[in-house]
């Protein structure tokens, strides 16, 4: 019984009712294997964010089926009673803006998630610092978020998404505010992490700089997905970064 990644079948989402109803997703099928980073691209309003929100258990789909490995999380209705726990333990989120908690320092921003899951403070901070080291921001571990550059903030938010070792990472335009060098660095990190932790990663993007890096891409148009082989070869895993562990 091992982890088999994300499976989405016939997923539909309708916003509103009656005349004003919007069918944002009209039957999405998608599979992401453990350790794989796939791109999700499509024009504005095509339903990318809606798909991430459904998979992230933030909004409820209208119909269809979603599973994470062996666990069916949605099948014409939620199959999980505590969605917050699901989000905390199974899903890492990376947003366009880093959205760090301004009153916690870098370490505690990352350590907060394991703390919320009941991990003792010291242990949670140790995990956080390890990840910050892997992401090259450990030297800013005691800084407040407002004292970081945009790229540093984004790396901290990636550390936060990874710290509970979730099987899934959902990233919505994670590179939008970054220059191409930093954008590529972020994608490289996501690839490294996916490889290292067997994480399934979906990256929503418009970003021409990073689209070529995906091995596999889903196109979404009018709420329907089309799979396509990407031109990228992905990244070679940089395992040396994790030699410390």
């Amino acid at each position: 019984m091992h982890w088999q990644g994300i499976k989405i079948e016939g997923l539909r989402k309708r916003y509103g009712e009656g005349d004003t109803a919007v069918d944002a997703l009209k039957g999405v099928d998608m599979r992401v294997a453990p350790g794989e980073v796939v791109g999700l691209v499509g024009p504005s309003g095509s339903g990318k964010t809606t798909l991430l929100k459904c998979l992230g258990a933030v909004i409820e789909p209208t119909a269809g089926r979603m599973s994470l490995g062996e666990d069916v999380i949605y099948d014409q209705g939620w199959k999980i009673s505590d969605l917050r726990e699901l989000r905390r333990d199974k899903i890492g989120f990376v947003f366009q803006a880093p959205y760090l908690i301004p009153f916690l320092d870098v370490t505690d921003n990352v350590a907060l998630l394991p703390m919320l899951a009941g991990v003792p403070n010291e242990e949670a901070r140790k995990r956080a610092v390890e990840l910050l080291e892997a992401l090259d921001v450990a030297h800013r571990a005691k800084a407040m978020p407002s004292q970081l550059s945009g790229g540093e903030q984004q790396r901290v938010s990636i550390a936060r998404a990874l710290v509970n070792r979730p099987p899934v990472i959902l990233a919505d335009e994670p590179t939008a505010p970054l220059d191409s060098e930093r954008a590529l660095a972020v994608i490289r990190i996501l690839n490294d992490m996916a490889h290292r932790f067997e994480t399934a990663v979906i990256v929503v993007t418009h970003d021409e700089k990073i689209i070529p890096t995906f091995k596999r891409i889903y196109h979404i148009r009018d709420g329907v997905t089309y799979e396509e082989a990407g031109e990228g070869r992905g990244f070679e895993p940089a395992l040396d970064k994790f030699a410390v562990k």
Binding site: G56, V58, R84, R87, F93, Y99, L116, A117
Partner: peptide, 16 residues
């Protein structure tokens, strides 16, 4: 509000 939304998203309980 935004920080609270993030806290909720990452699984913070209402009680907290």
């Amino acid at each position: 509000i935004r920080e609270i939304a993030v806290l909720k998203l990452i699984g913070t309980k209402n009680r907290t």
